[in-house]
């Protein structure tokens, strides 16, 4: 389980000075007008749950993930991984996490298998079983036969696959994936998707950041929207279904004024050829169906037309699509 508690990150205007706590006293050399990269983020990812992190460039998604995995320090607040603070109890917290960065960066001169074994050493893993495990991981991510190749010779997609192998090395219970699908080919995307679903089933807590909103929409149990460093909303799949932009599309055999009047009594309704479009996200589709049948109409088609995540996101941040 992952928990962000009031996490803020502010990069100092003067980079020779350490970052200042936004709530703390002003210090010499600090500019007060600088916008924080992350501003009081509160978020929880439960075990067996995938939470998608959505936001524009510079919204703070990568900063949040970097703080959570311990490569960046928060200016204020804390991140706990399975109850362990990532700064104060780094060893305990990091032992159960895996991270795939947006742009994986590994020692270019190292061989893939050597480097995985080197990383395994930090998890207290060594010997022949570890070597076998590393080989099997490389095989799983599609790097079979490249064990001895230098990581520096890998393409961006292969580096991403290698990063996935490195992230899975310690069988993590908490996974941070930053733009996981960037640079992957269709096979890699399918593998990643299946992997995520399988890890979720095994009880892994997964925080997934991506610009590919359809993937986020498909994979995530909940979606967290970050804008200008702040968490502006967290929404579940069910809530997204009933979002204000969702509509009910209804087709009956003989559409007439009576059907339209009934639907308008339920909510704002427009006609689209032979179809009625009811913009009332909270309405129960089964009840609408029953009422239409009771009034003598034969319902040919009735389905919820959900607002897509992209439209929802832009409506949320107040920008036109």
């Amino acid at each position: 389980m992952l928990r962000f508690a009031g996490v803020s990150k502010r990069y100092p205007a003067n980079r020779w000075l350490p970052a200042r706590d936004p709530g703390g006293p002003a210090a010499w050399g600090h500019r007060e007008d600088q916008r924080p990269a992350l501003d009081g983020l509160d978020l929880e990812v439960r075990n067996g749950e995938i939470v998608g992190l959505v936001g524009l460039n510079g919204a703070g998604k990568t900063t949040a993930i970097r703080i959570a995995v311990g490569v960046s320090l928060p200016t204020r607040g804390s991140v706990s991984v399975d109850g362990h603070d990532i700064v104060e109890e780094k060893i305990e917290a990091a032992s159960t996490l895996g991270w795939v960065p947006e742009f994986p960066n590994f020692e270019p001169q190292a061989g893939a298998l050597d480097l995985l074994q080197y990383f395994a050493g930090y998890h207290g893993m060594a010997g022949a079983p570890t070597r076998e495990w590393c080989i099997s991981l490389l095989k799983q991510v599609g790097l079979e036969g490249r064990e001895r190749d230098r990581v520096g010779t890998f393409s961006q997609g292969m580096k991403k696959r290698f990063a996935m192998a490195a992230a899975l090395l310690n069988r993590p219970k908490n996974l941070f994936l930053d733009e996981l699908l960037n640079g992957l080919d269709p096979q890699g995307i399918r593998f990643s998707r299946n992997l995520l679903l399988s890890l979720r089933q095994q009880g892994c807590a997964i925080l997934l950041s991506s610009h590919i909103l359809t993937e986020i929409e498909q994979l995530s149990d909940r979606i967290a929207f970050v804008h200008q460093g702040k968490l502006i909303k967290t929404i579940s799949h069910e809530e997204l279904e009933k979002a204000p932009g969702s509509r009910l599309r209804i087709r009956v055999t003989s559409p007439d004024q009576g059907a339209l009047e009934y639907l308008r009594s339920v909510g704002p309704t427009e006609t689209d050829g032979p179809t009625f479009v009811l913009a009332a996200p909270q309405v129960d589709p089964a009840e609408v169906n029953a009422q239409l049948v009771r009034r003598g109409y034969r319902v040919v088609d009735l389905h919820t037309e959900r607002e897509d995540l992209e439209a929802y996101f832009f409506r949320l941040i107040g920008e036109d699509t």
Partner: peptide, 9 residues
């Protein structure tokens, strides 16, 4: 960073 993410301070 690929090392910093490991259980090591």
């Amino acid at each position: 960073e690929s090392v910093m993410v490991r259980p090591v301070t």
